[in-house]
Design a protein around this nucleic acid. Structure first.
Length: 464
RNA sequence: UCCCCGAUAGCUCAAUCGGUAGAGCGUCCGGCUGUUAACCGGCAGGUUGCUGGUUCGAGUCCAGCUCGGGGAGCCA
């Protein structure tokens, strides 16, 4: 008999149907009157299926009365209309097969409140809770929506290398990839490690961004996007940073900053609309238990036009604001967290796209504007989380690019293939990066980024 | 990395001025019930994160360390 998903059993399968379901016990209420209620969950949805098992079952005494939270079962029976509130149907069991017991003395997931900090130490079991099941389902819908969005628009999904030899943004700490024996590193005549002896014959790292490589594909195939893991070895200890996270990076040929910002806005609207539409039950849960404004916030994003201001205009707003700053805003300095929050949460109360940042605080590949002091950069800022998207129009002019590389101390030889794009048939192009986990955080209202990725990697922590 | 806060039963927490460790949930046992994180009664459960110090006496005060949380920086 084919297994029925509990989500289908709860919602659509007609009353009277014979079904078989499999799942894990959430709670059991046993009556000495000779029957038991088993709340069964298979992860397909938030709601549990109520299984009613009575003493007519041959294994009632031996098995059913000893069930505890965490046991795995396959149950066959008939779906009947539930006389109780809170559910359309319940399953009257004709057969209860216990596949795996769960020692109640030691099973860590009790039917009670647990802190997220504790559940992080039990990350292999935490998806058996309402919150983490819902997070996993929303993360899935966000991922699917990302592909939908780009596929509908004819973008090519491309896979860029995870191991790289270029520190592609000239910033950010990289994880080194090596097969050298750390206890006995081969050294050259200058006493420094001889990287020629390493696996790749040179230093290699985990990627911090697939952007530069994605540009090469955009400059021949048109519109492309990458979606994969990214690594940053920064010693960041915050609820918004991971050492390993997933990033989406579209790159578009024949596109300027305006088109880039337009795409970013349409993209976010598409993602959050999909979450609202496809995860109503999970979102209701987040709205009740995690963040009472999360549904309203997502609706606002889907319905409202994002605010767009230039960096210079943003600085005007900030310097005119009658309040004190830990970091006083000043033209030429980067926007601080307190500035971003002021703009998104107090001034505009919605997402804000800030464009045209000073060239001095942005990387070499961003296109220098005619004013000579700003670049065609954009950041999409959202309330609470801050920067969700960072992007730019890329510098397509050979001479300007070389000048900027030189100014930032980068060697042309290390980026020869990147420079070639400007040498042979250069075109204006633009793109951006979206942090998947921050997007899931924003969609769910979850406060800590470590709770929206299955196994978080952070400084001094790589369990599981 | 910097600043602030925290660590007590399996989990969530309490313990006054430094005076001999307590509750709820869970487990187990019993009772009861078409129940919904059911309910009622009972048993068990602790080297108070680690190391050292002060003191007649430390969960409580001091120092160092480990781990965790919040804020900041870096960023997505």
């Amino acid at each position: 008999m084919e297994r029925t998903r509990i989500s289908d059993a709860m919602a659509t399968v007609p009353v009277g149907t014979e079904v078989e379901v499999g799942g894990w016990v959430r709670t059991v209420r046993t009556s000495k009157g000779g029957f038991a209620f088993i709340a069964l969950n298979d992860g397909a949805c938030m709601a549990n299926l109520q299984v009613v098992a009575d003493q007519k079952l041959p294994n009632y005494e031996n098995d059913v009365t000893h069930l505890t939270a965490g046991c795995s079962l396959v149950v066959r029976g008939k779906l009947v209309e539930s006389p109780a509130k809170g559910q359309r149907v319940e399953l009257h069991a004709d057969e209860v097969r216990v596949l795996g017991l769960a020692d109640a003395e030691r099973y860590p997931i009790q039917p009670k409140h647990h802190t997220f900090e504790f559940l992080r130490t039990q990350a292999h079991l935490r998806t058996r809770t309402n919150t983490f099941g819902a997070v996993a389902r929303v993360r899935n819908v966000v991922s699917a929506a990302i592909h939908d969005f780009f596929q509908q628009r004819g973008f090519l999904y491309v896979h860029m290398p995870i191991i790289t030899s270029s520190d592609c943004e000239g910033a950010g700490q990289l994880f080194r990839v090596t097969t050298l024996d750390l206890a006995q590193v081969p050294r050259g005549s200058d006493g420094r490690p001889d990287m020629d002896k390493d696996f790749f014959g040179r230093s290699a790292y985990l990627t911090v961004s697939g952007q530069l490589e994605a540009e090469t594909y955009a400059c021949s195939l048109g519109n492309v996007y990458t979606f994969g893991p990214t690594f940053r070895a920064e010693n960041s200890n915050t609820p918004r940073h991971l050492a390993e996270f997933w990033m989406v990076e579209p790159e578009m040929a024949f596109c300027d900053l305006q088109g880039d910002a337009d795409l970013a806005e349409a993209f976010l609207k598409h993602i959050f609309a999909a979450v609202l539409q496809r995860c109503p039950e999970d979102m209701e849960f987040f709205n009740q238990r995690i963040d009472k404004t999360v549904i309203e916030t997502l609706r606002g994003i889907v319905d409202q036009r994002f605010e767009r201001v230039t960096y210079t205009e943003a600085m005007d707003i900030l310097t005119r604001a009658e309040r004190s700053w830990e970091y006083p805003p000043a033209w030429g300095r980067d926007l601080q967290t307190e500035h971003e929050r002021f703009l998104t949460e107090e001034t505009f109360k919605k997402p804000v796209i800030v464009t045209d940042y000073p060239a001095t605080i942005k990387p070499f590949y961003m296109r220098l504007s005619d004013d000579g002091r700003t670049v065609a950069a954009m950041d999409v800022l959202v309330p609470k989380i801050g920067e969700l998207i960072g992007g730019s129009q890329r510098e397509e002019r050979l001479d300007v690019l070389l000048e900027r590389m030189n100014a930032q101390g980068l060697k042309e030889a290390d980026y020869w293939w990147y420079v070639d794009l400007r040498r042979y048939g250069s075109v204006p192009h633009a793109g951006f990066g979206l942090g998947l986990e921050r997007t899931v955080q924003f969609a769910t209202g979850m406060a800590n980024i470590r709770d929206v990725i299955p196994y978080p990697r952070t400084p001094r922590s790589a369990d599981f």
